[in-house]
Structure formats: C-alpha cells, structure tokens
C-alpha cells in the first residue's frame, strides 16, 4: 500500500521519500562506517587461509569454500549444531516464559513493586566474568552450594559442569538467569502500552485474570513478543562468555555451541585459526538471517490478516 501511495503521489510522494531518507540517514551512515568493514572482514577471513603468519604478513592463500567444507565435515559440527539448538531454544523459551510471567506479575502496582522490579535487573549490572564465575562456583561438584543443598535433601552429588550429561543444562540455566532481565524489561514496557480501558471493558464482561491474559494481553503483546524472541534468539546464538567461563564447551564438546566453537578456534588454543572461526561465525549470521526472514513473513501475515 505504501508503494501505491508513493507511486500515485508523484511529487509529494517523492518528497516524503526524501524526508524518510533524511531521518534514516544518520543510521545508514553509521552502519556503513562501523559495520560494513567488520562484515567484509569476516567474509574475507573465511575464504582465505589466515594462519598467524598470513595474518601478520597479509598474504593469505585464497581457499574459496574450503573452510566451510572443513567445518561442516568436522566431527564437532553436528554436535555443536545440536547443542546450539538446545541451548538457544531452551534459553529463549524459558526466558520468555519467565520474563512474561514476571512482567504480568509486576504490571499492576503493589507495595514495593517498583523496587522489586528494579532488583530483578541487578544480575545485569555484574560483569559477565563475575556472574559466570559465581555460577560455576555454585555448581561445583564438591564444594558448590547447589549440591550442598541437594545433599541436605538426600540427593547425591550431581556433576553439573563436569559430566557430559549435565554441562549443557548447567550453562543453559545460567544463561536463562542472565536473560530474564532483558525479557522482563521489554515485555513490561510492552504491557504498559496496552491501553487500560481494554482491561476495564473485559473486566466488566466478567472475564477472569486467565481469560484477560489470553484474550487481551497475549494477542496485543504479539509484536513486542516477536521482537523479544527474535532478539533473544540472536543474542543467545552469540553467547560465548558464559559457556566459556563455566565449561570451556566441555567436557569433550558436551556444551560446545557454534559460537564457542568459533571462539575456541580463534582464541581458545595457543594457535589462532581465524579462518575457520570466521566461517563458523558466518554460519551463525546465516542462521540469524533465516530467523529474520521467518520473522518478517510472520509479520506480513499478521498485517494481512
């Protein structure tokens, strides 16, 4: 429809376009300066063989898709892909559900609600090294507080970080904890934008809290939910620090995701391998791209409906 207006609008439409571009210009310039080069660089790294020597001397061998083929045929690949899927989907599903629950909980004011809500954001103020180290501290097999509590209830020692069966779960839990503030803030702001009269009208109809949530809150929150989930997906795909600090992706790749794999190739060993690292990074960009496509399609469907 916008296109129709523009075409029909002639001179006015064109001036509208210029205005739109003028408002967009700072962003476009900003993106060109600060993102174009790194993106180009990431692609450049992935299609050459950048050994440390080639990196310093600037004379890498062009290898075309070889790095990508190596990555895909590596034993780690399928494992990392599976872990990435579990980690990402598990994290965003739980973060979203908990964040939404909390947002609804805090939506109506009660004594101390503002302060309590603000306190929920405190985890975010901590440097990642501190929060991730604290989690690995708490989840330590022998001297961790979590096992110590479980043992008080007669549950035996769980090797949270050191067993291949639980390490992925452990880093996911820590990541969910870190992601709750993000979801809470955005979803809460979204709730604030739902006009109160709608609830009042529904209240008059005798709807209970549960019905109000499913009939009004949830549908009206859909655009905000969509963007929260999409961003959550992107940020979770990128997560390195928390996993790296807690398990190094181990034991034996049990908690290696694509992002930590990429990090390990580049910085986790004595010998930096930038090229495969960049190739894995680009695969992640592709995944995010695909998620973005799905998002836009859904949005369009919604707009048409």
């Amino acid at each position: 429809m916008a296109a129709l207006v523009t075409r029909a609008g002639g001179a006015r439409g064109r001036s509208r376009q210029w205005t739109a571009l003028a408002f967009l210009a700072p962003l476009v310039i900003y993106l060109l300066i600060f993102y174009a080069y790194p993106l180009y660089r990431n692609i450049d790294l992935s299609v050459h063989d950048y050994t440390p020597r080639a990196f310093v001397q600037g004379d890498p061998e062009f290898t075309g898709p070889a790095n990508y083929l190596d990555i895909v045929s590596d034993d780690t690949f399928l494992r990392a892909l599976r872990n990435t899927a579990l980690f990402t989907l598990g994290s965003i599903a739980a973060q979203y559900a908990l964040g939404l629950g909390l947002a609804v909980f805090f939506h109506r004011h009660f004594r101390l609600s503002v302060v309590l809500r603000a306190l929920f954001l405190v985890p975010w103020l901590l440097p990642l090294i501190v929060s991730a180290s604290t989690w690995s501290w708490m989840l330590n097999s022998e001297n961790g507080i979590v096992n110590s509590v479980l043992q008080a209830f007669g549950i035996g020692q769980i090797n949270w970080l050191t067993s291949p069966d639980t390490s992925l779960l452990s880093v996911t839990i820590a990541n969910i904890w870190l992601g709750i503030p993000f979801n809470l803030v955005i979803l809460y702001a979204g709730l604030q934008n739902i006009p109160d009269d709608l609830y009042e009208a529904a209240g008059l109809d005798g709807a209970n809290a549960w019905q109000r949530f499913w009939r009004i809150t949830f549908p009206l929150l859909r655009p905000v939910s969509a963007i929260t989930l999409l961003l959550g997906l992107i940020y979770t795909l990128k997560v390195v620090d928390i996993i790296w600090i807690m398990t190094k992706g181990g034991p034996a790749d049990a908690s290696t995701t694509l992002a930590t794999w990429s990090y390990r190739e580049a910085f986790g060993t004595g010998q930096p391998d930038f090229s495969p690292a960049a190739a894995v990074g680009n695969l992640l960009i592709l995944i995010a791209f695909a998620a973005g496509l799905v998002h836009v399609r859904l949005q369009r469907k919604e707009a048409n409906a």
Binding site: L24, L27, L31, F34, Y35, Y37, P38, L39, R41, N42, L45, L230, L231, I234, Y235, L237, K238, A259, S262, Y263, A266, F267, A278, G281, L284, I285, A288, F289, A291, G292, L293, V296
Partner: peptide
C-alpha cells in the same frame, strides 16, 4: 534495513573490535 540490522547484530564482537 531490517535485515541489515539483524545481520549487524550477529557479527561477532571480536570481529567488530578488530574492525
């Protein structure tokens, strides 16, 4: 632009830093 913004966020921080 939507896509560019999404892709932009996926560029690993380390690569951004090198840039």
């Amino acid at each position: 632009m939507d896509f560019l913004l999404l892709v932009a966020q996926m560029i690993p921080a380390v690569v951004m830093a090198m840039g």
